[in-house]
Design a binder for these strands. Structure first.
Length: 567
RNA sequence: GCGCCUGUAGCUCAGUGGAUAAGAGCAACGGACUUCGGAUCCGUGGGCCGGGGGUUCGAAUCCCUCCAGGCGCACCA
């Protein structure tokens, strides 16, 4: 990659100058390569002379003067080097580097942009993890494409990445129990018995419908169990598989597939020695370990974790005074489980409702003795669905559900993903449903897809008209300003991918895609691809066009958005 | 009250240490094709980058402070 080559050459140049001046190598500044604000200022630029000038006690421009000859002597395909402004070193590359990029895209195809060297790092991205008590709700929807796309980015960067969904179905999980109680109440209600619907119960119609099915299948045989609050978890379990199956299907349609659905329940189970107390498995092991290490202690009949020693505002309860573990115990055990499975790095993706839980989770993990450098928690901010200029109000408990399924039905998967991924995760997002639905020029996702379809159309056209392109396009014929700009954008792709991965910033890719697309449309307007009068040029332009299609498809692929051949 | 996030063009947002031009999309206005898809392209107007102070050769970007909005602060998850 060109950037690596330039950085290597700069490092070499700095080293040489340092040697001339008798400066220690370790104190050399990091090389930063930037894009000049204007193509007239060159292809690449660096500020090393300004950053490094203090150490050599020179003026920035003076240091730059010393560096330039070394650069010129390097293997880089430089046309010329200039020193500009306060001390920038601007490099003008020979055009061949752009032509080489086109050839590289056509050689590496699907692989173009991805890291060629595996890092060997085993990573896990855990996301969505919505409570399995109903359809996947829009509140969790932003995390789905974000986590999925981030995972793809990390894979492209050479990591071994696993996507995981944590199913909160533990026997003491409040949401699951509340859902069970809701089913119980609706079941009794369907039997014509007087009921008191649980406070905070799930009021959705689907709960009523599920309870009705219980009546169809079992009549009143479950009435006794349904009247027993202790049996709430049983009633939850009856529908868990069904709910998860639907979640799996909806998310799949949203382009998100998980490698592992990890059940909280499993933390409480031990296949070797099932235990009625429900305290075996990782939960028990983790609690025992914490007590043994004196990180947990008993107080007021409960067991507390010393999170206060690790930056939390107070210690937190692990096991309630009635013996039921809290979710914190589950999270501690789950983390232990993750590391036991051999991940080097685990990433949690949280919705805005869990933002306040971040310091606490960090304290829990620290108290458990886990290395926080191996844990990353990313929070995404709220989404506001807007329709007709009005905020769409949603309340899951009240049954006003706007699910991922509804969203896909309304705006389609591609638009939905693009809109969610368009904004930085820590920016609040206004999702304009009207705009997402509109199949017009206003909709950014079509702008990009249109370019892809257009390219496919050119290829079809070429075939119909019987164009026969040579095997070896003479790419040096590509010299129009719009061609150069387009090639430059393609050349940036690997770097964009890397920056997006490192910054955990999938949204950068949507910006990049628009720029690449714009460069293509400009080229298309300025340059005719198919011209039977000039086959050599047509061949070169067809290669450029195909390379563009490839990069568009690769980038759309990372975003999980389709690249249509026709629209 | 405490914590997290945000404040950039009329609207929605990029840019998070660099260049005496702060960008995009949409909206507004004006243009472009007898040729490969007009879901396209070109142009114009529009900004004390929330206010103030500081660090730096250099700040929308880092620090402090104030203001405004969103979200969170359980022996719930």
């Amino acid at each position: 990659m060109i950037r690596e080559e330039i950085q290597a050459a700069l490092t070499e140049a700095l080293r040489a100058v340092a040697a001339e001046c008798g400066i220690d190598e370790p104190s050399l500044p990091a090389i930063e390569l930037t894009d000049p604000p204007n193509p007239e200022m060159g292809d690449f630029s660096t500020n090393v002379a300004m950053v490094g000038c203090k150490q050599v006690k020179m003026a920035p421009r003076q240091l730059a003067e010393l560096l330039v000859p070394h650069l010129e002597a390097s293997d880089l395909v430089l046309e010329r080097v200039e020193i500009a402004g306060p001390g920038f070193i601007n490099m003008f590359m020979d055009r061949s580097w752009l032509h080489n990029t086109v050839a590289e895209v056509l050689r590496t195809r699907d692989e173009y942009g991805q890291s060629t060297q595996p890092t060997g790092v085993k990573m896990q991205v855990e996301f969505v993890s919505a409570n399995p008590v109903g359809p996947v709700h829009i509140g969790n929807a932003r995390g789905a494409p974000f986590g999925d796309c981030l995972a793809s980015l990390l894979q492209a960067a050479g990591n071994d990445v696993q996507r995981e969904y944590y199913v909160n179905d533990g026997p003491f999980n409040t949401q699951a129990l509340t859902f069970g109680l809701s089913i119980q109440a609706r079941y009794l209600e369907a039997l014509g018995k007087p009921i008191e619907f649980p406070e905070n119960g799930y009021q959705g119609d689907y709960v009523v419908e599920m309870a009705r099915r219980l009546v169809d299948e079992h009549g009143d045989a479950l009435a006794e169990r349904a009247a027993d609050p202790e049996a709430a978890h049983e009633f939850f379990i009856m529908f868990e598989d069904e709910i998860l199956a639907q979640a799996r299907e909806d998310l799949k349609e949203f382009g998100v597939e998980f490698d592992v659905w990890y059940h909280e329940r499993e933390l409480y189970e031990d296949p070797e020695a099932p235990d009625a107390t429900g305290m075996r498995g990782f939960i028990k092991r983790q609690l025992d370990a914490l007590m043994a290490a004196d990180q947990a202690y008993e107080h007021d009949g409960a067991i507390w974790l010393r999170t206060g020693d690790f930056g939390d505002e107070k210690d937190r309860v692990l096991v309630r005074s009635d013996g039921r573990p809290t979710y914190i115990a589950g999270d501690a055990a789950y983390a232990a489980n993750k590391f036991a499975r051999g991940f080097d790095h685990v990433i949690y993706i949280f919705g805005p409702d869990h933002a306040g839980y971040v310091p606490r989770l960090q304290a829990v993990l620290a108290a458990c003795g886990f290395d926080l450098d191996r844990v990353e928690i990313i929070v995404y901010q709220n989404v506001r669905m807007v329709r007709g200029g009005e905020t769409v109000k949603l309340a899951k408990r009240k049954g006003q559900i706007y699910s991922v399924r509804d969203l896909i039905d309304e705006v389609g998967r591609d638009a939905a993903r693009f809109f969610f991924l368009m904004r930085s995760n820590d920016s609040h997002l206004d999702f304009d449903l009207d705009l997402a639905v509109s199949q017009s020029e206003e909709n950014p996702v079509y702008y990009v897809q249109y370019a892809h379809a257009r390219i496919c159309s050119i290829a079809r056209q070429a075939e119909e008209r019987g164009f026969e392109f040579g095997d070896k396009p003479d790419l040096s014929l590509l010299s129009d300003a719009s061609e150069l700009a387009l090639m430059r954008k393609m050349a940036d792709y690997p770097h964009e991918l890397r920056v997006a991965a490192e910054g955990r910033a999938p949204h950068r890719l949507t910006t990049y895609l628009r720029e690449l697309t714009q460069a293509f449309h400009q080229f298309y307007t300025n340059c005719q691809v198919l011209n039977s009068e000039d086959m050599a040029l047509s061949t070169a332009r067809m290669a450029l066009t195909e390379a563009t299609r490839q990069v568009l498809a690769n980038c759309l692929g990372i975003l999980g958005i389709s690249a249509p051949e026709r629209m």
